[in-house]
Write a protein that binds this DNA or RNA. Structure first.
Lengths: 165, 165
DNA sequence: AGTAAAACAGAATGATCGTTCTGAATCACA
DNA sequence: TGTGATTCAGAACGATCATTCTGTTTTACT
């Protein structure tokens, strides 16, 4: 909480007055994180003409974000899933919603890519969307374990290669 | 620590006398977890004649383990990576060693599977090994978020389909 | 059975956490 | 400029944590 006061520049008084408690504050932060990620990364997949290169770019951007400037930040979704979701069903529900939205965005992007002939014609884009989401979270774990960027890029290559057939 | 005393049936006296502090105790537990997982899951991949079905079986076993009897346990590697590895370089090193070992085991298994004609002849088994490890950790995140077994199995299908080409 | 070492349960300790309280400083508005 | 509400910084509180201490019980060996 001390860190939050310092980082936000808002006093305890202000934080508790606005959010009630740390838990509520966190939930809003998670919501904000999801919105930001949606706008920065996944919105472009919903536009017509999205390609496999858009998907690759999202992975690259997310890797850069997760690696952070100084230290390996990881991903708030993954931190939340591992640390809180099992003991907090409401938070788990929120997380599920975000992850499904993420998977759906991948699916829509893959559908566009399929129309462009960039992925296997018989690809099940719904399944592949969830699968790419899972890969994204797996990458967060690898980032936290300190694997180098090159390794992370190889993983993305392997994951995407599976779609082109 | 109270939980550890209750779960192990050993007193604080015994734990601190044997391991020194909680951190050391945890490191030994992690080591033990890795050994157990290695024996239960990955040893069979090193034997000749390992097949793609062995790899699939490992994923199924790990999913069953991660889902747990009552609650979603996840994976100690993933918990450690997210919660401790970034602030504890020694633990990060241990974790990297285990993950590389896991990737290597997958690679060896894939090499056998390639000889059996079960995967693409041009598959880069070294990269694919790291990639399967990443998928395994991504699955732990999905487990913790409460996704149903069926979804997890679909993810495994997608991941393995990428290898057969 | 007797004795010394080992292991026990649980209280004590000091640090840290989330939260609330308090008196001072700042702000908006007349 | 004066006044009432808002926001501040930081102390205080109660809970929880890792760790240590203490007096008692159990174990191992003669």
């Amino acid at each position: 909480m001390e860190d939050l006061v310092r980082a936000t520049g808002v006093s305890r008084y202000g934080i508790y007055g606005t959010f009630g408690n740390k838990r509520e504050f966190f939930e809003q932060a998670l919501e904000r994180y999801a919105d930001s990620m949606g706008r920065q990364a996944f919105l472009r997949l919903l536009e017509p003409g999205a390609s496999l290169e858009h998907i690759r770019a999202i992975f690259m951007d997310r890797i850069a974000e997760m690696c952070g400037a100084n230290r390996a930040k990881g991903c708030l979704f993954v931190h939340t899933a591992m640390e809180l979701a099992a003991q907090d069903t409401e938070l788990q529900g929120v997380l599920q919603k975000f992850m499904k939205r993420m998977s759906k965005a991948f699916s829509v992007g893959l559908e566009s890519a399929r129309e462009r002939g960039e992925v296997r014609p018989d690809l099940d884009v719904r399944r592949a969307g969830i699968y790419l989401t899972t890969t994204m979270f797996g990458l967060a774990v690898m980032v936290r374990t300190g694997f180098p960027r090159e390794t992370l890029h190889d993983i993305v290559d392997s994951a995407l290669a599976s779609l082109t057939g």
